[in-house]
Design a protein around this nucleic acid. Structure first.
Lengths: 202, 202
DNA sequence: CTTTCTTGATTGGCCGACCAATTATCTTTG
DNA sequence: CAAAGATAATTGGTCGGCCAATCAAGAAAG
């Protein structure tokens, strides 16, 4: 009836996807093995075949979401072409769009943060993700500085600022979609970033 | 042994404070009535005398944290004097300091967000808080615009940007204190805000 | 002697983890 | 190539434990 050999990855991803849906619906508090199994259309027992425990499933969910974020950012980078300004704008737009288009993904992040706060291993995973994002943004900034598009500035600091801004505004979007629209948010975020990186006025 | 009449508020705050400590240690997932009671040095039963259920305790914890944030922000505003620029700088500094000095408070926020994502009433409470913060920041911005300190801009949008920036950078601080220091963060956040609001635009 | 506050034990339910048994697939062997 | 293991995948049920909420009863204050 069900496929067997060599389909482990398929089943695994099915479970992870179901987990993300459950997480978005009920949060980590309301996340039970039973619900996940039901959502994925598998038996409860199998969850512990693919994952050591509940935390491992949460980590897998974050990894999936992270991979998707990376993919979107990379796509945005590519779309932005060679120009640092355009690449940065595309990056900001991609991140903000994620906050509303893939609301479930953002929820996974927030739920993960909650657990992370009191679990060192989870914290390390998150720290690595943020470091990666800062490095990526920093690289674009440095590229722009070299090209003379942006003012001379420390890439690392600028990256922290830009990432913080995008994160913070995304949160506001995810929390309360009525406050302002994505389009609006994208506009004033890119505006802020460009002002921040603009060359000094003579 | 224990005081009785009219001490309800005292006991209540003792419970809430214990809840905040527990929340910071084990998160909302690991928050149990037993632990809170033990931490507060009271019996389990009393928790349901002061609070309808677990969620009500979480709400109370957020209210306490929020009140503290408001107090700090108000103090910063007063310290900043009349000058819009200084007031804004003081505000940013106060928020960022909270992320490390009162780490427990910040954790309460994150835990609350996790629960909020799938609970409308909690979401409304949070939305009100953010709206209040935006209004407050917006007012300072408008004041600066009127005084000619800042460029002409929409107070509401600027407030969302500034709040987002502070939130996002605070998160990075709370998540991984080794990434950069508070002093550093404060410096480049205020720098970013000032550039964003600066009159001379290229 | 009434009201307010407090206790600690109880209860019903659910959860994560574990496991023995079963089925499907692959591999080896005659 | 077919029978016979060997291995991988899957199931459903079980179990000990813990949790939130309830409650009857008691203690302190008015």
């Amino acid at each position: 009836m069900s496929p067997k050999r060599g389909v482990a990855p398929l089943r695994r991803t099915a479970i992870v996807r179901a987990t993300i849906r459950c997480l978005a619906r009920d949060g980590y508090t309301g996340l039970t093995m039973k619900k996940v199994a039901r959502e994925a259309g598998v038996s409860q027992g199998i969850l512990h075949y693919y994952f050591a425990d509940k935390r491992a499933i949460l980590v897998a969910a974050l990894e999936t979401v992270t991979a998707d974020l990376d993919r979107r950012v990379a796509a945005a980078q590519a779309r932005g072409g060679k120009d640092a300004k355009e690449r940065l704008q595309a990056l900001v737009a991609a991140c903000l769009r994620l906050a509303v288009e893939e609301r479930a993904f953002w929820i996974v992040f927030v739920e993960f943060w909650g657990e992370m706060m009191h679990d060192r291993r989870l914290r390390e995973i998150n720290a690595a993700l943020y470091e990666r994002m800062r490095r990526l943004i920093g690289a674009v900034v440095v590229q722009g500085v070299r090209a003379g598009t942006f003012r001379r500035t420390d890439g690392r600091r600028a990256a922290a600022v830009i990432l913080g801004l995008v994160d913070g505004v995304s949160l506001q979007l995810a929390f309360d979609a009525t406050a302002f629209s994505v389009a609006e948010a994208t506009r004033f975020c890119t505006d802020a970033v460009m002002r921040y990186l603009a060359r000094e006025v003579p």
